[in-house]
């Protein structure tokens, strides 16, 4: 087994283990763990069976296996970043809603004694 394979296998195992540990300690939610798990398993497979990569390279018609690897890796990273961007946008929208809700509630609370006093004076 080549040094590169060992490096790849150790790397993906470390990712898998930290994934597990983070999930166990509630530091990571399932929806993020899923995609990282797939990435780690994919890396593990390619590291363990480099012939797969060579086969895929010729099947697609590329010259250098490393090119395919880098292409796929950059694609994966792009997808992950995209997922995070969309999650961030959703979170921003939600904090905005929350802030508005809190502010509106505060106004309502502050106006309540005032309103009660007014209605009390009217009925008097």
């Amino acid at each position: 087994m080549s040094g590169v394979s060992i490096l790849g296998i150790v790397g993906s195992l470390v990712i898998l283990l930290s994934l597990f540990e983070m999930l166990r300690r509630h530091r990571l939610r399932e929806k993020y763990a899923l995609i990282w798990g797939i990435v780690a398993l994919g890396a593990l497979t390619v590291a363990a069976f480099p012939s797969l990569l060579a086969w895929a390279t010729t099947a697609i018609g590329l010259q250098v296996p490393a090119n395919l690897l880098f292409f796929v890796a950059s694609l994966v990273i792009m997808v992950l970043t995209l997922q995070h961007s969309s999650e961030l946008g959703r979170l921003e929208e939600r904090t905005r809603t929350l802030a508005e809700d809190v502010a509106l509630l505060q106004v309502e609370l502050e106006r309540r004694p005032l309103l009660e006093k007014e209605s009390g004076e009217e009925s008097a």
Binding site: R24, H26, E30
Partner: peptide, 17 residues
């Protein structure tokens, strides 16, 4: 299966929650 596995290995009480 995944949810059950996680529930069983997890630390409780949860820090995040």
């Amino acid at each position: 299966v995944f949810a059950l596995f996680l529930a069983l290995v997890r630390d409780w009480p949860a820090q995040l929650d």
